Amino acid sequence: RIEKCYFCSGPIYPGHGMMFVRNDCKVFRFCKSKCHKNFKKKRNPRKVRWTKAFRKAAGKELTV
Rank of each mutant, 00 (worst) to 15 (best):
Arg29Gln: 07
Arg1Lys: 11
Gly17Arg: 01
Gly15Thr: 05
Arg49Gln: 15
Met18Tyr: 08
Ile2Asn: 10
Arg1Val: 11
Ala58Lys: 07
Asn23Tyr: 05
Gly17Tyr: 02
Ser9Pro: 06
Arg29Met: 07
Cys25Gln: 10
Pro14Phe: 03
Asp24Gly: 03
Phe30His: 00
Met19Cys: 04
Asn38Gly: 04
Pro14Ala: 02
Phe28Lys: 02
Cys35His: 00
Arg43Gln: 15
Gly17Thr: 05
Phe7Arg: 01
Gly17Pro: 06
Lys47Gly: 12
Cys31Tyr: 00
Arg49Met: 14
Cys25His: 08
His36Tyr: 07
Tyr6Gln: 10
Lys32Glu: 14
Val27Cys: 02
Cys5Tyr: 00
Lys40Leu: 11
Asn23Ile: 08
Ser33Gln: 10
Ala58Glu: 14
Asp24Leu: 01
Lys47Asp: 15
Asn44Pro: 05
His36Gly: 04
Glu61Lys: 00
Lys32Trp: 01
Arg49Trp: 04
Asn44Ala: 08
Tyr13Glu: 14
Phe54Ala: 14
Phe7Gln: 14
Phe20Ser: 07
Arg22Thr: 14
Ala58Gly: 08
Lys47Met: 12
Arg46Ser: 14
Tyr6Leu: 04
Val27Leu: 04
Thr51Arg: 02
Pro14Leu: 03
Cys35Asn: 00
Met18Leu: 10
His36Met: 12
Lys26Gly: 12
Lys60Ala: 15
Ser33Ile: 06
Gly59Glu: 14
Lys60Arg: 10
Gly59His: 09
Lys34Ile: 07
Glu61Pro: 10
Thr63Ala: 08
Cys25Gly: 11
Lys56Ile: 11
Tyr13Pro: 11
Phe28Trp: 03
Glu61Gly: 01
Cys25Ile: 03
Phe7Leu: 06
Lys56Gly: 14
Arg22Gln: 14
Asn23Ser: 09
Pro45Cys: 04
Ala58Cys: 06
Ala53Leu: 07
Ala58Phe: 04
His16Pro: 09
Val21Pro: 00
Arg49His: 13
Leu62Ser: 13
Tyr6Arg: 01
His36Asn: 03
Phe30Ile: 04
Met19His: 06
Lys42Val: 06
Phe54Gln: 14
Gly10Ser: 11
Val27Met: 07
Ala53Val: 10
Lys47Arg: 04
Lys56Tyr: 15
Arg55Asp: 15
Pro45Asp: 11
Ile2Cys: 03
Lys32Asn: 15
Ala53Glu: 15
Ser33Ala: 09
Arg43Asn: 15
Lys60Pro: 15
Lys40Ile: 05
Asn44Glu: 15
Arg49Ser: 15
Lys42Phe: 03
Lys52Val: 13
Asn44Arg: 02
Asn44Thr: 05
Tyr6Pro: 01
Lys32His: 06
Val48Ser: 07
Asn23His: 05
Tyr6Trp: 06
Lys37Ser: 11
Ile2Thr: 05
Met19Asp: 10
Phe39Trp: 10
Arg55Trp: 13
Ala57Cys: 05
Lys41Glu: 14
Trp50Asp: 15
Val48Lys: 06
Ala57Tyr: 04
Arg55Gly: 15
Val64Lys: 05
Gly59Phe: 08
Ile12Asn: 00
Val27Ala: 04
Trp50Tyr: 11
Lys37Met: 06
Lys56Asp: 15
Lys41Phe: 06
Ala58Ile: 03
His36Lys: 05
Asn38Arg: 02
Gly59Val: 10
Asn23Gly: 11
Gly59Tyr: 09
Phe39Gln: 02
Lys47Ser: 13
Cys31Asp: 00
His36Asp: 06
Lys52Gly: 13
Val64Phe: 04
Cys35Tyr: 01
Gly17Ser: 07
Asp24Glu: 04
Ala57Asp: 13
Phe39Val: 02
Glu61Asp: 10
Met19Ser: 09
Phe30Cys: 04
Arg22Lys: 07
Phe7Tyr: 09
Asp24Asn: 02
Asp24Trp: 00
Ala58His: 03
Ala58Gln: 07
Thr63Trp: 05
Pro14Ile: 02
Gly15His: 07
Cys25Glu: 12
Lys26Pro: 02
Lys52Cys: 13
Val48Thr: 07
Asn44Leu: 04
Ile2Gly: 09
Gly15Trp: 01
Gly15Gln: 06
Pro14Val: 02
Phe28Arg: 02
Met18His: 03
Phe39Tyr: 12
Lys26Asp: 12
Asn38Gln: 08
Trp50Gln: 09
Val48Ala: 07
Lys34Val: 10
Tyr13Gln: 13
Thr63Lys: 05
Lys41Cys: 05
Phe39Asp: 04
Lys60Trp: 11
Arg29His: 09
Lys56Ala: 13
Phe20Trp: 09
Lys26His: 09
Val27Glu: 12
Lys37Cys: 04
Asn38Trp: 01
Phe54Pro: 15
Tyr13Lys: 05
Ile2Glu: 12
Ala57Phe: 01
Arg22Pro: 07
Phe54Tyr: 09
Gly59Asn: 07
Val64Glu: 07
Val21Ile: 09
Phe7Trp: 12
Lys34Tyr: 04
His16Val: 07
Asp24Arg: 00
Cys35Gly: 00
Gly15Ser: 04
Lys42Tyr: 07
Lys26Cys: 04
Lys37Asn: 11
Val27Tyr: 02
Glu61Leu: 05
His16Phe: 06
Ala53Lys: 03
Asn44Tyr: 04
Tyr13Met: 12
Phe28Gln: 05
Tyr13Leu: 09
Leu62Val: 06
Phe30Asn: 00
Lys41Ala: 08
Leu62Asp: 14
Phe7Val: 12
Val21Trp: 04
Arg55His: 15
Met18Lys: 02
Lys32Pro: 01
Pro14Trp: 01
Arg55Pro: 15
Glu61Tyr: 02
Lys42Thr: 10
Arg55Tyr: 13
Tyr6Asp: 05
Lys42Pro: 02
Arg29Cys: 06
Pro14Gly: 03
Gly15Ile: 02
Asp24Tyr: 00
Val64Gly: 13
Asn44Asp: 13
Arg46Leu: 12
Phe20Glu: 15
Cys31Asn: 00
Arg46Gly: 14
Asn23Cys: 04
Arg22Leu: 08
Arg43Ile: 11
Lys60Tyr: 10
Cys31Gln: 00
Gly17Ile: 03
Phe54Asp: 15
Ile2Ala: 06
Arg49Asp: 15
Phe7Thr: 13
Pro45Gln: 09
Pro45Arg: 02
Ala58Tyr: 06
Val21Ser: 03
Thr63Gln: 11
Val48Trp: 05
Gly17Cys: 03
Trp50Asn: 11
His16Glu: 12
Lys37Tyr: 08
Val27Gln: 08
Lys52Ala: 10
Met19Pro: 03
Thr51Met: 05
Pro45Leu: 05
Met18Glu: 14
Cys35Trp: 00
Phe30Asp: 00
Glu61Cys: 03
Ala53Arg: 01
Gly17Leu: 02
Thr63Ser: 12
His16Thr: 12
Thr51Gln: 10
Ala58Asn: 09
Cys25Phe: 06
Gly15Glu: 09
His36Pro: 01
Lys52His: 13
Arg49Ile: 14
Arg55Phe: 13
Tyr13Ser: 12
His36Leu: 09
Met19Ala: 09
Arg43Lys: 12
Arg22Glu: 15
Cys31Pro: 00
Lys40Arg: 05
Thr51Ala: 07
Asn23Gln: 03
Asn23Glu: 13
Arg29Glu: 07
Cys25Asp: 13
Arg1Ala: 11
Val48Gln: 09
Tyr13His: 09
Arg29Tyr: 11
Phe20Met: 10
Arg46Cys: 11
Phe54Glu: 15
Trp50His: 11
Lys40Tyr: 11
Met19Gly: 04
Arg1Gly: 12
Cys5Arg: 13
Val27Asn: 01
Ser33Asn: 05
Leu62Tyr: 03
Arg55Met: 14
Ser9Phe: 07
Lys56Glu: 15
Glu61Met: 04
Lys47His: 09
Arg22Ser: 14
Asn44Cys: 06
Tyr6Met: 11
Met18Arg: 02
Ala58Pro: 07
Lys26Ala: 10
Lys41Met: 07
Arg43Glu: 15
His36Ala: 10
Ser33Val: 05
Ser33Thr: 08
Ala53Pro: 10
Asn38Lys: 03
Thr51His: 05
Cys31Val: 00
Lys56Ser: 11
Arg1Thr: 13
Asn38Thr: 04
Cys31Thr: 00
Gly17Asn: 06
Glu61Ser: 01
Met18Ala: 08
Lys47Phe: 07
Leu62Thr: 10
Lys52Pro: 14
Ser33Asp: 13
Val21Lys: 03
Lys26Leu: 03
Phe7Cys: 06
Val27Asp: 05
Val48Ile: 08
Ile2Asp: 10
Arg55Asn: 14
Tyr13Val: 12
